[in-house]
Amino acid sequence: MKYYYYAILEPEKHYYNVTFPDLPGVNTFGEGIEDALDMASDALGGHLLVCENDHDILPEPSTFDDLVSHLDVKQQLQLIMVDTKIIRAREENRTVNKMVTLPKYMVELGKDRGINFSQTLQRALKEELNL
């Protein structure tokens, strides 16, 4: 299931603190804004997985307008989206053997160049699926 919750990012020296106003107790931080956003997504995803597993009732996400007026000058809002279906699939991380048909010349060239066919296919699928 896809969820959208706003995070508040607040700079603190060389890192950003991250909190979720609708989900007290879900806090994290990151070194730099990009790391903070990655950590926010991980923290939110982990929390929501536990909530789903426990059949907890989740609060309705606040709107931007509800939250923006309560921000401090240094704080900023960032909408974080997580898809627990994808997170669960990654956590299972089960490998499945699939048969693939390739032209013989590609197989021979790949072997000659030391290409790992499984890793190459996984990279291509991740790119195609925007993962």
Rank of each mutant, 00 (worst) to 15 (best):
H14A: 11
Y15T: 01
Y15H: 10
Y16I: 04
Y16T: 06
Y16D: 07
Y16Q: 08
Y16A: 10
Y16E: 09
N17A: 06
V18P: 01
V18I: 08
T19M: 03
T19N: 05
T19W: 01
T19A: 07
T19Q: 09
P21G: 14
P21Y: 12
P21A: 14
P21K: 14
P21W: 13
D22C: 13
L23I: 15
P24T: 12
P24I: 12
G25Y: 15
G25M: 14
V26C: 13
V26L: 06
V26P: 02
V26D: 00
N27A: 07
N27H: 10
N27F: 11
N27P: 00
N27T: 13
N27D: 10
T28C: 04
T28Q: 01
F29S: 15
G30N: 09
G30R: 09
G30T: 11
G30K: 12
E31C: 02
G32K: 04
G32Q: 05
I33Q: 05
I33H: 03
E34Y: 08
D35I: 01
D35W: 01
D35C: 01
A36C: 07
A36R: 03
A36S: 06
A36P: 04
L37C: 04
D38K: 11
D38I: 05
D38S: 11
D38E: 15
D38C: 07
M39E: 07
M39C: 00
M39R: 10
M39I: 02
A40W: 09
A40F: 08
A40E: 07
A40C: 11
S41T: 13
S41W: 05
S41E: 12
D42W: 02
D42E: 14
D42Q: 07
D42H: 03
D42Y: 03
D42L: 12
D42A: 12
A43K: 06
A43T: 02
A43W: 00
